[in-house]
C-alpha cells in the first residue's frame, strides 16, 4: 500500500517537474524533508502533498493552454 501510494506521486511528479535544474531560491532547507515525512505519515499528509502537486499540475496545464492561443492581431 505504502509503495503503491509513493509511485502514484512519483508518476504525477515526473509529469510536471524537472528534477535536474539547479535552484538557488531559499525557503527552508528542511521543507523537502517535511513533505517526505508527511507522505510517510499517513492520509492527512498525503492529502497535503497531493494538493501541492495538484496546484502545480493545474498551473502547468493553464500555461500550456495560454501558449496555444493564437497571437492577437491588429485588426
Amino acid at each position: 500500500m505504502r509503495l503503491s501510494r509513493m509511485f502514484v506521486f512519483l508518476f504525477v511528479f515526473c509529469m510536471i517537474s524537472n528534477p535536474f535544474s539547479m535552484v538557488y531560491a531559499y525557503l527552508d532547507p528542511g521543507s523537502g524533508s517535511m513533505l517526505l515525512q508527511l507522505l510517510l505519515g499517513g492520509v492527512a499528509g498525503v492529502v497535503v502533498v497531493f494538493k501541492l502537486y495538484w496546484e502545480r499540475l493545474k498551473s502547468f496545464l493553464n500555461r500550456r493552454d495560454t501558449n496555444e492561443q493564437p497571437p492577437p492581431t491588429n485588426d
Binding site: S17, P19, V23, G32, S33, L35, L36, L52, R56
Partner: peptide
C-alpha cells in the same frame, strides 16, 4: 527527498 526539496523551494 531531493525532488520534494526542489518543489518546496
Amino acid at each position: 527527498h531531493s525532488i520534494f526539496q526542489k518543489t518546496a523551494q
